[in-house]
Computed example of a mutant assay.
Amino acid sequence: MTALVALAVGLFVTTNLDDLFMLVAFFSDARVRPRQIVAGQLAGLAALYAASVVFSLLSLVVAPAWIGLLGVLPIAIGLHAFARRQRGDDSDDDDAAPDADRAGGRANVLVVAATTIANGGDNLGIYTPVFATRSGVEIAAIGVVFAAMTMAWVGAAFWLTRHPTIGPPIQRHGRRVAPFVLVALGAWILHDAGSFALLASWLRAA
């Protein structure tokens, strides 16, 4: 069991290091509640875990380039946030109507989850063959470790943004930097997954 836990921790760390930067960017945005980030991150990684289990059972692997196309989402979100700041429409007003707040909360959860999934092409590619050689009990145990590591990841990002020394600069400048982080993350996802080549082939065929 110790070896299995070590394997699960290693799998999670190697495939989710870049998620820390994403989480810090979200925690720096006052409009996104911590509970929404937690829910979105858990939902996104749960979807990747479930997809990997299904693909391992069916002996199928989704090409990372197709998953990487979701990288356009953080780019769009970043550009939208930048446009809001340019218009001066990026207030921290917390006095919104309850219905609007609930709707915005659901949207924030979906944004975090979708960004996590978009950044998960390597997760699918690595988890699927590992799960294909494991029993159902072992796959379930790995899932439990992944859930615990997800909470640790969220906690680490939250700690970075709230640290008494480095937290204030992150909070002060993070919101201005967050749109650029999201655009850069989206571009990196598209490049790393090979999605740019996929898009180029579509353009050539058009």
Rank of each mutant, 00 (worst) to 15 (best):
L203Q: 13
F131Y: 15
V144D: 02
N123C: 05
A141E: 12
G194T: 04
G40N: 02
L190V: 00
G121H: 04
V53K: 01
P164M: 06
T2S: 11
R172W: 07
R106G: 05
A96V: 12
N123Y: 00
A103D: 01
G143C: 10
D29V: 11
W159C: 08
G120P: 08
L57D: 14
F21V: 14
G174K: 02
L60G: 06
F55Y: 09
P74H: 00
L48T: 14
D192I: 09
M1P: 09
V111K: 01
T161F: 03
A156L: 10
P168D: 08
R85N: 00
N119T: 01
D94F: 09
I77H: 06
Q41N: 14
F26V: 09
Q41C: 15
V53A: 13
A97H: 06
G155N: 03
D95V: 07
W188C: 04
L11F: 02
A63P: 11
G125Q: 14
L45R: 12
G10E: 07
L17T: 13
I166V: 12
A152L: 12
A43L: 13
F21H: 10
G143W: 08
R84L: 11
V38S: 08
T128H: 06
N108L: 08
L70Q: 05
T161C: 14
L20A: 10
M22D: 13
R176I: 11
F196D: 06
W202H: 14
S201E: 13
R106N: 03
V183I: 12
T2C: 07
V154L: 04
V24D: 07
T116H: 07
A50W: 02
I75H: 00
T115G: 10
L70R: 05
T165C: 11
P129Q: 13
V144Q: 04
L160I: 09
V38W: 10
P169E: 07
V5C: 13
